[in-house]
Structures are given as C-alpha cells and as structure tokens.
Computed example of a mutant assay.
Amino acid sequence: MRADTSTSPIPVTPTGLSRRAERFIEVNGIHVPHQSVRHHRDAWIGHGVPAAEVDRATDFQERWGGLALPPAPFYEGGRRILGADCPEGSAAGGWSFPAGTCRVSMAYGFMIGPEGAFGLDAHRWTPLHASTDGWVESLALADHAGRCAKTVTKITGEAVQSLELREYEPIPEVLGVTDTWWRGKDSLIALSRGEAVGLEAPQCLEAHVYGGLDAWGLHGG
C-alpha cells in the first residue's frame, strides 16, 4: 500500500474553544498547506517511538497542523505555524513532540508535553498552558485586550513579583500553568513566567497590564 504523502485539507476552526478564540482564528488565522504525519507512523515506531505517542502527534496535527496565528506578546512572538513532528523521549521520562516552527532563532523550543501541555523545552521542560487550546485562548485574549485597553503597561523582572492580585480572578479558559491571565475591576493582567522558569532567569519575568477596560473589554467573549 502506498504511503499517504498528500497535504491535508484546509481545516475548519477547532471545536471546543471560546467564541473569542473562534473569532480570533477566523479573522486572524491562516491555514497553510501541510502534510499529514500519518505516513511517518511506521518509520517513527521503527525508531522506538511508542504507537500511542505517534497517535498523539497525529491527533495534534489533525487539529492544529498548518494554522498560522499572529505573534504572541511574549516569547519573541511564539510559534509561527503550528505543526507536529517526531516525538522525543526525555531523560526524566515521558514523551514530547515539537509544536511547530519558530519565528526567530531561540534558546528553546515549543513542545507538547507528556500530559498534553503546551510549553517550553529549555534548560528544563516548562508547561505554559495545560493544552494548546489554552495557548490559543491566551493569544486571542491578548489580541482582544490590546484592542480594547486604554493603556498597556509592561512590567519586567523583580517588579512583577510585587503585582497585587488579591482583587483579581484567574481567567480559566487559558488553562494557565506557568503563564496565567487575571481579570480585575477594569483591567486584565497577563503574567509570563515561562522563560524565567525554563531558563532559570528571573530577570525574564514579564507582565502586561491592560487598563481602562469596560465590561466588553473585560469579557468580550
């Protein structure tokens, strides 16, 4: 039987996202031609990759493969195009696979971890969001907040630790692990800890405070 080397059809917007994220993909996303990874299955298994890990990478490719989104506010813009590649075993146990191509040369890569988290492969594995859905929700929220806020304040390094969040509530749809979003009375806060944790570089802590938001700007989804 001949291997399937054809490109996948242009996908529809993935299901299960918030309406905000759906609109973000529909308006800002571009689906570029991409190959299925199914034709790599036998070769990857032959190199010792468990079949279940090949299936995980295949499922990711079918849901997200070929989706190009606008730059993220952190991580030098993040992924350029989402897409799976060959799973890799780690010395600490478990398997991960690359999540797509970078926009620029970086000291780390973006991976999908053993439990499905979207994160950084740097000095150590650092999950940013519990799934790729959370990463995309975060991008959509950043786009929305950037358009609706009257002010955007960037805070870096030790000053991030002094942010007072007791009157804020976490935004659940971003599925935050190391990176989180918070909603206050008239502002949103995005906290990025991934580089600080993954590179063991506390000076890389960063937060963006989006101020002057009305009810639509706070929720908008």
Score class of each variant (00 low, 15 high):
residue 1 M to K: 05
residue 4 D to M: 07
residue 5 T to G: 04
residue 8 S to K: 10
residue 8 S to T: 14
residue 11 P to Y: 12
residue 12 V to K: 15
residue 13 T to H: 03
residue 16 G to R: 11
residue 17 L to Q: 05
residue 21 A to R: 07
residue 22 E to F: 04
residue 24 F to S: 07
residue 25 I to E: 02
residue 26 E to M: 09
residue 27 V to Y: 08
residue 28 N to Y: 09
residue 28 N to G: 06
residue 32 V to P: 00
residue 32 V to A: 09
residue 35 Q to S: 01
residue 36 S to G: 15
residue 36 S to R: 14
residue 38 R to S: 12
residue 38 R to E: 14
residue 40 H to W: 13
residue 42 D to A: 13
residue 42 D to I: 07
residue 45 I to R: 14
residue 47 H to E: 15
residue 49 V to T: 09
residue 49 V to Q: 03
residue 54 V to D: 06
residue 56 R to V: 01
residue 64 W to P: 00
residue 65 G to D: 14
residue 67 L to A: 01
residue 67 L to N: 02
residue 67 L to I: 14
residue 69 L to H: 09
residue 71 P to R: 14
residue 75 Y to S: 03
residue 75 Y to C: 02
residue 79 R to Y: 05
residue 79 R to C: 13
residue 80 R to V: 05
residue 80 R to I: 03
residue 81 I to D: 05
residue 82 L to H: 15
residue 82 L to W: 15
residue 87 P to E: 05
residue 88 E to H: 10
residue 91 A to N: 06
residue 96 S to V: 03
residue 96 S to A: 07
residue 97 F to L: 08
residue 98 P to N: 04
residue 101 T to I: 12
residue 102 C to W: 07
residue 102 C to D: 14
residue 102 C to F: 08
residue 105 S to N: 13
residue 107 A to T: 06
residue 108 Y to R: 10
residue 108 Y to K: 10
residue 110 F to P: 08
residue 110 F to C: 09
residue 111 M to E: 15
residue 111 M to L: 12
residue 112 I to D: 04
residue 116 G to K: 11
residue 118 F to Q: 00
residue 119 G to S: 08
residue 119 G to K: 11
residue 122 A to D: 12
residue 122 A to Q: 10
residue 123 H to P: 00
residue 124 R to D: 13
residue 124 R to M: 14
residue 124 R to P: 02
residue 133 D to S: 10
residue 136 V to S: 07
residue 137 E to Q: 10
residue 137 E to P: 02
residue 138 S to Y: 02
residue 138 S to K: 02
residue 138 S to D: 12
residue 142 A to W: 07
residue 143 D to N: 13
residue 145 A to T: 03
residue 145 A to S: 12
residue 149 A to M: 05
residue 153 T to F: 00
residue 155 I to N: 06
residue 156 T to Q: 09
residue 156 T to N: 00
residue 158 E to M: 03
residue 159 A to I: 04
residue 160 V to A: 01
residue 160 V to L: 04
residue 161 Q to H: 11
residue 161 Q to F: 06
residue 167 E to N: 14
residue 168 Y to E: 09
residue 169 E to G: 10
residue 170 P to N: 06
residue 171 I to A: 03
residue 174 V to L: 11
residue 174 V to G: 06
residue 175 L to Y: 00
residue 176 G to Y: 12
residue 176 G to C: 07
residue 177 V to L: 15
residue 178 T to K: 07
residue 179 D to H: 09
residue 181 W to C: 01
residue 181 W to V: 03
residue 183 R to C: 02
residue 183 R to E: 00
residue 185 K to A: 14
residue 186 D to E: 13
residue 187 S to Y: 03
residue 188 L to S: 08
residue 190 A to P: 00
residue 193 R to P: 01
residue 194 G to Q: 04
residue 195 E to K: 11
residue 196 A to G: 12
residue 197 V to C: 07
residue 198 G to P: 11
residue 202 P to K: 05
residue 202 P to D: 02
residue 202 P to R: 05
residue 204 C to K: 13
residue 204 C to R: 14
residue 205 L to A: 08
residue 211 G to M: 01
residue 212 G to Q: 04
residue 213 L to C: 02
residue 216 W to E: 06
residue 217 G to W: 04
residue 219 H to S: 05
